[in-house]
């Protein structure tokens, strides 16, 4: 095995272990911390594939996202002063299982049916200029559409959140 392969296995096993920690941990806070470890591991995978831009985006987006997730978890769960673990699973468990299997199936089909450019042995190093050209020139219109969608969601979220203190 080459050094890259060893590193790949170390991080692959780490990601799996941390993801298992997310699911099986008894405390919401621990789950969130395992989650950021797992997502950071995926970021390292991107570095191994020499797509630093994606890796940094992963860190930037999920660092903030997990923070917000922790805050939401804090607000939506009851903190038990005695330190007992709160019950996370409810009657929604089978639906969660169904949704998980569906997402996994979509991802697997997408991954297996795509013709990937470059192989793991000789990953293509993509310059940031190429990415920006594709994103802002070739796919400029879909990019703007996606931004508008996000903006609408943002405004909607603010309106929903504001309503309770309207009067």
């Amino acid at each position: 095995m080459t050094a890259t392969e060893v590193i790949w296995w170390v991080f692959a096993l780490g990601i799996v272990a941390l993801s298992a920690g997310v699911v099986f941990s008894r405390s919401v806070i621990h789950s969130a911390i395992f989650l950021i470890g797992s997502l950071a591991g995926v970021g390292v995978m991107f570095v191994i594939l020499t797509v630093e831009f994606l890796a940094l985006t992963q860190f930037l987006i999920y660092g903030g996202a997990v923070t917000v997730l922790v805050l939401l978890a804090l607000m939506l769960t009851r903190a038990d002063p005695s330190g007992r673990a709160e019950k996370v699973n409810g009657p929604q468990a089978p639906f969660a299982l169904l949704a998980g299997i569906a997402v996994a199936a979509v991802l697997l089909v997408a991954a297996l049916s795509t013709e990937w450019a470059g192989t793991a042995d000789s990953p293509a190093s993509i310059a940031i200029e190429t990415i920006s050209q594709r994103l802002f020139e070739d796919f400029g219109f879909p990019f703007i559409l996606a931004s508008v969608l996000l903006l609408v969601a943002l405004v909607g979220a603010i309106i929903v959140a504001r309503q309770e203190e309207g009067e």
């Binding site: 950071a40 985006t57 860190f59 660092g63 903030g64 997990v66 923070t67």
Partner: peptide, 8 residues
């Protein structure tokens, strides 16, 4: 990107 992780 990395400084944002500080908050965690």
């Amino acid at each position: 990107a990395i400084l944002g992780l500080n908050i965690v």
